[in-house]
């Protein structure tokens, strides 16, 4: 067995194991962490296919941003597992139909000769060719105009999110020392005159 093939099967086994654990684990935080592992293995497979850019993007975007957000949401929300699990049997028929369809489609693409996936050659890049460099060069030369505009679209997204959710400054409970020093007794203390009670 070639070393490449060994690495592929190694990564694929981890990927399948991690993906299975994502849906079978009871603890949502552990499930999310297994999803991170699955992403890492998938990006390793992409590196084997010489798609470094996709591999890096997968780690940066999905592991670095999306999964961290996911973990925060999972940790901050109080998820009731029993409520999530109810209705499992009623959804099972529909779910299994969808799963069978996906398996059938994958089988068609991989096995059938009419779909031509196996015939299509993977283009062999010359040594020292970096697709990160190629993508970067295109983004910053030929596609610099839409690239910059896409960043403006993102900026608008941020501005809109802030404008729609920020409800002014929250009242803070901190104490201003300078005001505290100047406080007078009559601001805080109310002296009430009461008739003295007669002791027995």
């Amino acid at each position: 067995m070639e070393f490449r093939t060994f690495v592929f099967y190694f990564l694929a086994a981890i990927l399948v194991f991690a993906s299975l654990r994502v849906v079978t684990l009871r603890n949502p935080v552990h499930a999310a962490l297994h999803l991170v592992l699955a992403f890492f293995s998938a990006s390793g497979i992409w590196v084997l296919l010489q798609a470094e850019f996709l591999a890096i993007a997968l780690i940066l975007v999905y592991v670095g941003a999306v999964m961290v957000l996911f973990l925060f949401v999972v940790m901050l929300l109080d998820i009731d597992l029993d409520r999530l699990r109810e209705g499992f049997w009623s959804y099972l028929p529909l779910g299994s139909i969808v799963a069978l369809l996906v398996v059938a489609e994958m089988g068609l693409v991989l096995i059938s000769r009419y779909w031509g996936v196996l015939e299509s050659e993977v283009p062999q890049a010359e040594a020292g060719y970096s697709n990160v460099q190629a993508v970067g060069r295109l983004l910053f030369t030929e596609y610099v105009y839409p690239f910059e505009l896409a960043s403006v679209v993102l900026l608008v997204g941020i501005v809109a999110a802030v404008a729609l959710t920020l409800r002014g400054k929250r009242k803070s409970k901190s104490v201003s020392p300078s005001q505290q020093v100047f406080v007078k007794a009559k601001d805080r203390l109310r002296i009430v005159q009461m008739p003295a009670e007669k002791g027995d």
């Binding site: 403006v152 679209v153 608008v156 501005v159 809109a160």
Partner: peptide, 11 residues
């Protein structure tokens, strides 16, 4: 261009 316009308008 359409997205930039629409996104601002939605907000």
């Amino acid at each position: 261009g359409i997205e930039l316009l629409s996104l601002s308008l939605y907000a």
